[in-house]
């Protein structure tokens, strides 16, 4: 096990991502941040808070459960559903930034795109990930990345957040 990102590094990465999102989207009143539960949702709240501070305006934030849209449901025991909460401004015609902790195969993001499509039609959909570990299985890329971590497929990347795990850090484990 090795620590890939410390608490300080995570904090810096999220601040940087917040700036980048605002820079990439000049009409910031159309941005909505949607985290993918569980850890992506907490990261989304942090990013939205940081963006609100920078932009001096409230950036809407919510969460989007993608369980029912996964393509690997039948390979696992049934997963409990996570809450979905869409801000009152909705997603129609807005610039949606999806937030996930680790970008890996890309399948979670595909499911998220499907889940979004069921709710409405955003103007754009962008993707922010704290860690991009490579090994994509679908043509999906992140617009905003905290850190690129080259890994082997036998390794696993674990993101720990204070809200859930009591500590902020990203570790790589060899299986």
């Amino acid at each position: 096990m090795s620590v890939a990102l410390s608490a300080l590094e995570i904090s810096r990465a999220l601040t940087r991502i917040s700036h980048e999102i605002l820079e990439a989207n000049p009409s910031s009143d159309l941005i909505t941040i949607l985290g993918i539960p569980t850890r992506g949702a907490h990261l989304a709240v942090r990013i939205a808070a940081s963006m609100s501070q920078i932009a001096a305006r409230e950036i809407p934030v919510g969460m989007l459960d993608i369980t029912m849209h996964r393509d690997d449901l039948r390979m696992h025991p049934p997963r409990p559903l996570m809450p979905t909460s869409i801000p009152s401004s909705g997603i129609q015609g807005r610039d949606i930034v999806l937030v996930d902790d680790v970008l890996f195969s890309g399948r979670t993001i595909r499911a998220a795109l499907d889940a979004l499509g069921e709710i409405g039609r955003p103007r754009t959909v962008q993707l922010a990930a704290l860690v991009d570990r490579g090994h994509r299985e679908l043509p999906i890329r992140a617009d905003f990345v905290g850190k690129n971590l080259p890994t082997s497929t036998t390794q696993s990347v674990k993101v720990h957040l204070t809200e859930i795990d009591g500590i902020d850090q990203v570790v790589i484990e060899d299986n």
């Binding site: 459960d65 029912m68 849209h69 559903l81 809450p83 979905t84 069921e118 709710i119």
Partner: peptide
């Protein structure tokens, strides 16, 4: 019951169909 609660929330909104 928890799953039904989340699904009820989905059904209340625009989504009427899930691909599950």
């Amino acid at each position: 019951l928890d799953t039904a609660t989340e699904l009820a929330r989905v059904s209340d909104g625009a989504v009427k169909k899930l691909p599950t």
